[in-house]
Design a protein around this nucleic acid. Structure first.
Lengths: 138, 138
DNA sequence: CGGTATCCATTTGGATACTG
DNA sequence: CAGTATCCAAATGGATACCG
């Protein structure tokens, strides 16, 4: 274990704090999409992310903006246009995020399979032991 | 945008499913620690992860085991000994996870700074507009 | 179009106590 | 040691309605 590793292991705080913000589903999605789109409008983004509510997308974008990862540009037009993009800091996140994205695409099947096997085994174990342990205390 | 990118962007489902499981704080922590420790006992793991409750660590480990990412080995001794490690599938996750870990260590400071700036700006805006807009409807 | 505000059900997760 | 079980407060997040 290198010094660097030791420092990382002991200082889970930074990692923890970062994960509290960017470790949720929607944040990872947004950064992933933005890294490909360059710049994109609110509703485009909403359509790109399956299942996100307007509320959650707004909150996610505000948090990412607050943390200096995402830019928000308002064009004073009618109807209003707001475009989102990655900051320089945000762009440095695309490496880790995209490698996680690639990993998901590649190994999702294996996870699904593992779940089935695990669940089948649990069901079998539960069925095998209908008898209770009877014992007297004292 | 390559074909691969298009496929990833449209199929957020796999990514979404994977993130629902491994995208939380504790899971990332556990995989990160295990990638360094090789194999480790329950309470060692608990001590390594600041702030995790016994309940959450158990749940996290069960889920990771179910998804085929973590092995659980019981040694029938007294007192009982249970050791956790990464499966081969789990080991493939260490690349993405550790790069996220490194990113956190490197950029945590920038995020903290960005937050301060954002919050100060918001406070200033709030203080600047105590006047309300009065208007008559109809 | 791009939000905000409110309500409310569900989920999450810590604390605590108990067990083999 | 390595859990399991229960309780309960807080956070999460969808649905809905409304606004500039």
């Amino acid at each position: 274990m290198s010094l660097k590793d030791t420092a990382q292991a002991s200082n889970c705080t930074a990692m923890s704090d970062v994960l509290n913000r960017i470790g949720d589903k929607w944040s990872v999605m947004v950064v992933g999409i933005l890294s490909r789109s360059g710049t994109i409008r609110f509703n485009e983004l909403k359509r790109s992310i399956n299942g996100v509510s307007q509320r959650m997308l707004t909150l996610t974008l505000r948090n990412l903006e607050r943390d200096g990862l995402v830019t928000r540009t308002i064009y004073p037009e009618v109807p209003p246009r707001v475009e989102y993009g990655l900051t320089e800091l945000g762009k440095t996140l695309t490496g880790p995020i995209n490698s996680l994205w690639d990993w998901s695409a590649e190994h999702h099947g294996s996870i699904i399979d593992a779940r089935s096997i695990y669940d089948d085994r649990q069901t079998a174990v539960a069925a095998e032991a209908p008898r209770k342990i009877a014992y007297a205390r004292g």
